[in-house]
Design a binder for these strands. Structure first.
Length: 241
DNA sequence: GCCAACGTTGGC
DNA sequence: GCCAACGTTGGC
């Protein structure tokens, strides 16, 4: 396979922690959503994901995304937000990861490539932790929910010509042998440098370097196979097909 | 259910 | 551009 482009945008200055993507520190970056020659809006540029290097041999970049595996009714929409990893299993489903309304998380999605891998994290449950992996099956495209007045993620300030929000599609890749709980990850934090899950608790789309990813998979393989991952997923789905 | 952390909004 | 008020996330 030909090496894919690196996530790194080498000349991009390190953004301030709270900086918006439109920050003036990135003089060369394209402005948000100018319309390209083919009429499609261009996604905004991005994030400090450049710090996190992918696999140098395959060009694959690694990420972590969060989802809630337990039923919770969103008070605004009365909709259940529940989305366990098991919802992606077995039907060759692609799920559009839309509704993300945080600039840094969006910026991370914008630099994802098809074929990248994202760890799947269960949050807001008894034992939060990493339970599996999904693959990015479609690179960033405009998040339609921002135009839907009935959707909880509707954004009145966004326009078709100048969309603010972008999303990727994901599909199931594998379940972990066991859950890597947040507690365990915190306890082993010294082995997991630069892991934003531990330092930026509220960021829902997180870049993960290849080295870090490798360490996490090593940790996963240390323990026995576990059934309780906050959802039912067949043990046979541990390995990549 | 509580609340700390932190991102966003809007008045000035 | 500052910063107080507000809203949301997510661990506990």
């Amino acid at each position: 396979m030909a090496p894919k482009r690196k996530v790194a945008v080498s000349k991009v200055a390190k953004p301030k922690p709270n900086s918006k993507p439109e920050s003036k520190t990135k003089a060369k970056a394209p402005k948000v959503a100018k319309t390209s020659t083919n009429g499609k809006p261009i996604p905004p540029p991005t994030s400090h994901a450049y710090k996190y290097e992918g696999n140098p041999d395959t060009g694959i970049n690694y990420w972590l995304i969060k989802s809630e595996p337990v039923s919770r009714i969103d008070p605004k929409t009365q909709q259940d937000v529940k989305f366990p990893l098991s919802d992606l299993v077995g039907k060759d489903i692609e799920e559009t990861w839309d509704g993300v309304r945080n600039y840094e998380a969006r910026n991370n999605m914008v630099v994802m490539s098809k074929g990248d891998i994202a760890l799947f994290y269960h949050s807001n449950c008894d034992t939060p932790g990493i339970v599996g992996e999904v693959e990015i099956s479609h690179e960033a495209h405009v998040d339609e929910t921002q135009f839907n007045t009935k959707h909880k993620s509707y954004d009145s300030k966004s326009t078709r010509e100048n969309p603010k929000w972008w999303c990727v599609d994901v599909k199931f890749r594998r379940r972990f042998r066991r859950k890597l709980s947040l507690k365990e990850l915190q306890a082993k934090a010294d082995q997991l440098p630069e892991f934003l899950l531990l330092t930026r608790g509220r960021l829902s789309v997180i870049p993960v370097g290849y080295e870090l990813y490798t360490k996490l998979v090593e940790m996963e393989c240390e323990g026995d196979i576990q059934d309780d991952l906050d959802c039912e997923i067949d043990r046979a789905l541990i390995n990549v097909k």
